[in-house]
């Protein structure tokens, strides 16, 4: 392959005017652009992706978020909705209250706003569907296994809701009730709902171990197949 007929995409490099692959994976050709996508890699964010992240640090007007990428992602103070839904400039008081809003270890669902020059991601939660995640379980899989869909928030028929983060972090929680905004840390999850969440978790991990793509249909089918067995009998 020479450079005259093709453009260099991810996973390739030029040497002596020849395009070579730098990773082991699948070749994707979009017009003249040639990319090689590795079988497994850390998350490479794109604008508009839905991600689930873990807050690792509270800093000056921003939070550092772990999204399983090669650099920590940033969530700016200006990119979150203020409690109460006000629209105003962030003051010093807001800076001091940052830790009360989100602290280390908290889980959030967010959207990728932009990608910086060095590859790090800027996230935002400026929509009612994003925000802190409280009651539920986190499952981590390889990002490549998450199928890109129109929506990554699913309320499954089996009675739970899942968020399939593009970065491989999946959040499973009991079905969100009407007043989901006021989710408190007080528990109100019944044993039945917990079993559903546990069953879903095991199904997702089983699919991931077999390198199968994860999306709402594949997870639902696996869930239905697993109903033949008791949750506590599952392999993991």
């Amino acid at each position: 392959m020479t450079i005259f007929h093709s453009c260099r995409g991810h996973g390739t490099y030029l040497q002596d005017n020849k395009l070579k692959a730098s990773v082991a994976g699948f070749v994707e050709k979009v017009g003249k652009l040639i990319c090689v996508k590795p079988v497994k890699s850390r998350y490479n964010g794109e604008v508009g992706d839905v991600v689930v992240g873990i807050i690792t640090e509270v800093g000056q007007r921003r939070w550092k978020v772990d999204t399983y990428s090669r650099l920590d992602s940033l969530l700016m103070l200006s990119a979150v909705n203020l409690p109460g839904g006000e629209l105003r400039r962030r003051s010093e008081k807001d800076e001091l209250m940052m830790r009360q809003h989100l602290t280390e270890g908290d889980l959030i669902s967010a959207e990728v706003q932009s990608v910086h020059g060095d590859g790090s991601l800027a996230l935002h939660t400026r929509s009612l569907k994003y925000g802190k995640l409280i009651q539920g379980t986190l499952v981590t899989v390889a990002p490549a296994l998450i199928k890109r869909c129109k929506t990554h928030f699913h309320n499954l028929e089996c009675g739970a809701s899942i968020i399939l983060g593009n970065n491989g972090y999946i959040w499973i929680s009991p079905l969100l009730k009407e007043d989901a905004e006021n989710q408190t840390t007080k528990s109100d999850t019944s044993t039945l709902e917990r079993e559903i969440v546990a069953r879903l978790r095991n199904c997702i991990m089983a699919l991931a171990e077999r390198q199968m793509l994860l999306y709402d249909t594949s997870i639902t089918y696996t869930y239905e197949a697993s109903l033949n067995y008791q949750v506590s009998q599952h392999k993991k």
């Binding site: 772990d66 602290t103 908290d106 840390t185």
Partner: peptide, 13 residues
């Protein structure tokens, strides 16, 4: 992959 600190919500769950 995941950090060693858990949020209050996850711990409670």
């Amino acid at each position: 992959m995941s950090s060693s600190t858990l949020s209050e919500g996850r711990k409670q769950f």
